[in-house]
């Protein structure tokens, strides 16, 4: 167990390192002139040639890529990811604040979509080829083709503009001092983005669970349980649930990448000040340091999810536990 975790951790670190190289390389070959992007069009035109050269040197235009990367890596290892130009603060600070907002959103969506998708998948399998199954399947197929941001827009029109149940955006009410914001306010602002993200996330897990549950329902164990007189629901609960929960859990951990991507879009629609919105601002505004920081964090988030899934699998599934014990004895 410990050896497996250690092995996964090493892989995690090497992958994060590789992501930082890729991200750094990609922002470096950008055609966007750092001087022009950072001082603005008007200031750039009014600037003297000497001043431009000075700034170009400051942004490291002349230095080779590897030297700059080494520089960046050196300070990154000490916890300094540089300064964000758009937010005028250290990248780590910007990310910390934004991550708290995004994490709340993603966690809610992750849990709701997982539980709901799992339940829908089992219901669909239990009613295979009858109307509940058709309804759930159709819903999932349709949802898989729906752009997240469009659904967010429709929810915004219906729930915020027409019905007025939810605010139009942001994570806190406008014009209220940060200290006066209650938890209820925050939840009120979180509800619509979280709902959008949850609804979109259901499709994958529901379809997957449905397939697995159909297999389980046709297994000998289930047939015997039903022959003994147990109801379908009871048999599924006692004999199917553990078998079904494991792959579903793995899938849900693997879907973190998609939830992260979805949150970027949803945050943009609802002006929700999370990581995704910061990534868009950084990308559009030429904020290189912040963009690299967010890329690395998002990758760490995704790899971390997969890592956790692998470790949890070992803890929950007795077959893997036993196989490992055997390996250790051998």
């Amino acid at each position: 167990m410990a050896a497996r975790v250690a092995q996964q951790l090493v892989k995690f670190i090497v992958l994060i390192f590789a992501v930082s190289v890729v991200a750094f390389f990609l922002v470096s070959i950008s055609p966007i002139d750092p001087v022009q992007a950072n001082v603005g069009q008007v200031a750039y035109l009014n600037m003297s040639e000497a001043k431009r050269a000075q700034l170009a040197e400051y942004w490291g235009v002349g230095t080779p890529l590897w030297e700059r990367y080494g520089h960046w890596l050196g300070s990154a290892l000490q916890g300094d990811l540089g300064l964000s130009l758009r937010y005028n603060a250290p990248v780590t600070d910007v990310i910390a604040v934004r991550f708290a907002n995004s994490a709340a959103l993603m966690l809610v969506a992750w849990v709701i979509s997982g539980v709901l998708g799992f339940a829908l998948g089992i219901v669909a399998a239990a009613f295979k080829d009858r109307w509940p199954d058709r309804l759930i399947k159709g819903y999932c197929f349709l949802l898989a083709s729906t752009p997240t941001f469009w659904l967010a827009l429709v929810f915004l029109i219906v729930f915020a503009v027409w019905l007025g149940w939810f605010p139009l955006g942001f994570s806190v009410p406008i014009g209220v001092a940060p200290g006066d914001v209650t938890l209820l306010d925050s939840l009120h602002h979180l509800a619509l983005p979280a709902l959008t993200l949850s609804v979109v996330g259901v499709a994958n897990i529901a379809l997957h669970t449905r397939e697995k549950a159909i297999d389980v329902l046709q297994s000998d164990a289930l047939r015997f349980a039903r022959a003994r007189g147990q109801s379908t629901a009871g048999a599924l609960l006692h004999h199917g649930l553990r078998n079904l929960a494991l792959p579903a859990l793995t899938l849900q951990f693997a879907s973190i990448s998609e939830i992260f991507g979805g949150s970027v879009l949803v945050e943009q629609v609802f002006s929700y000040p999370g990581l995704g919105q910061a990534a868009v601002t950084a990308g559009l505004g030429g904020d290189v340091a912040l963009l690299v920081g967010i890329t690395i964090l998002s990758a760490a988030f995704v790899f971390g999810g997969n890592l956790l899934a692998n470790v949890l699998y070992g803890v929950i599934d007795p077959r893997i536990r036993r196989a490992e014990r055997k390996e250790n004895h051998a």
Binding site: V19, P31, E258, G261
Partner: peptide, 23 residues
Amino acid sequence: WLIDLMMGIPHIVLLILISFAIG
């Protein structure tokens, strides 16, 4: 490894990076 790496970065973030890199 390359596949793992590409799947590790969320698509949208990677697309933002690539669009930033090549315009």
